[in-house]
Simulated scan of single mutants.
Amino acid sequence: MTSPALLRIGVMGAHSTGKTLLMRRIERELRGRDTAVVRTGRLGRRAALVPLPKMQHHTVDSTKWVIATGIADEIAAAVRLEQGPVQVVLADRACWDALAYFRAAQEWRRQPSPRADRESLHRLASAHGHEYHLILATVLDPDLPVEHKHDYDARYRTLVDRHTHALLREENIPHVRVTSDPASQELAIEHALQLCMTQAPL
């Protein structure tokens, strides 16, 4: 019997740029094609319940928790997957995402952490970060309004966007940029679906 292909698709980008919506749409499309899929997420909300600092207040420990918990969630999701020719884990916040948020927080506070701490976080993220078969990176559109319930710091949000794409370049990680343009989002979804469909054994 042929072993199923296990694919990991991650998304990263600044807050309120459509990451979760994008992953939900991919999940819905895959389920409609009878593909075994599990989506992870809610890391920010769960960190707040610990409680751990978030956003521009991220620390080394809070970032370590987000990276490690996200990795653990992805491993558990893979175990829970139902059998099928293709199995997909959708990571709503790839582990690289937490590192970008941390770097943005350091710049926002103008308080860089010790080099040893920065390197330890990078090792933690990179140990798992290269296992993604596809990374979708949302692009911040500052002209789009944010819901009133979100009290975001605009400068920090811009820094997260900048560090997200800088990190992807630094690590030479293949990825698909996803803008707020509906056509860009549709292309990203199609890219993910094509990846999953081509991995099915003949």
Results as ranks from 00 to 15, higher is better:
residue 63 T to F: 02
residue 151 D to G: 11
residue 171 E to P: 01
residue 154 A to I: 08
residue 63 T to P: 02
residue 99 L to F: 09
residue 35 T to K: 06
residue 56 Q to L: 07
residue 2 T to Y: 08
residue 6 L to Q: 01
residue 37 V to D: 00
residue 57 H to M: 14
residue 113 S to G: 09
residue 152 Y to N: 11
residue 56 Q to Y: 08
residue 64 K to L: 14
residue 20 T to V: 09
residue 92 D to I: 10
residue 114 P to C: 10
residue 185 Q to S: 14
residue 176 V to D: 03
residue 88 V to A: 03
residue 4 P to T: 01
residue 110 R to K: 15
residue 53 P to H: 09
residue 88 V to T: 04
residue 152 Y to T: 04
residue 82 E to P: 02
residue 84 G to S: 07
residue 6 L to S: 06
residue 139 V to T: 11
residue 21 L to E: 13
residue 113 S to A: 15
residue 153 D to L: 04
residue 123 R to Q: 14
residue 139 V to Y: 02
residue 54 K to E: 10
residue 169 R to C: 08
residue 81 L to S: 05
residue 187 L to R: 05
residue 114 P to M: 12
residue 130 H to P: 01
residue 21 L to Q: 13
residue 172 N to R: 13
residue 170 E to N: 07
residue 40 T to F: 02
residue 94 A to E: 04
residue 54 K to S: 14
residue 128 H to E: 13
residue 139 V to P: 01
residue 98 A to W: 04
residue 170 E to A: 11
residue 153 D to E: 13
residue 1 M to E: 12
residue 170 E to D: 15
residue 26 I to L: 08
residue 138 T to I: 06
residue 197 M to L: 14
residue 71 I to G: 01
residue 45 R to K: 13
residue 68 A to H: 09
residue 157 R to I: 08
residue 81 L to W: 03
residue 142 P to Q: 01
residue 78 A to G: 07
residue 68 A to Y: 04
residue 99 L to A: 06
residue 176 V to Y: 02
residue 92 D to M: 10
residue 51 P to F: 05
residue 163 H to D: 03
residue 182 P to E: 06
residue 32 G to T: 06
residue 193 L to N: 04
residue 198 T to W: 04
residue 102 F to Q: 07
residue 138 T to D: 04
residue 8 R to S: 00
residue 154 A to C: 09
residue 107 E to F: 11
residue 201 P to V: 11
residue 28 R to A: 15
residue 32 G to D: 05
residue 52 L to A: 03
residue 107 E to S: 14
residue 160 V to A: 03
residue 25 R to C: 07
residue 93 R to G: 01
residue 97 D to F: 05
residue 158 T to P: 00
residue 86 V to T: 09
residue 184 S to C: 04
residue 104 A to M: 12
residue 8 R to E: 04
residue 159 L to N: 02
residue 152 Y to L: 13
residue 201 P to M: 09
residue 26 I to E: 01
residue 96 W to F: 15
residue 17 T to M: 02
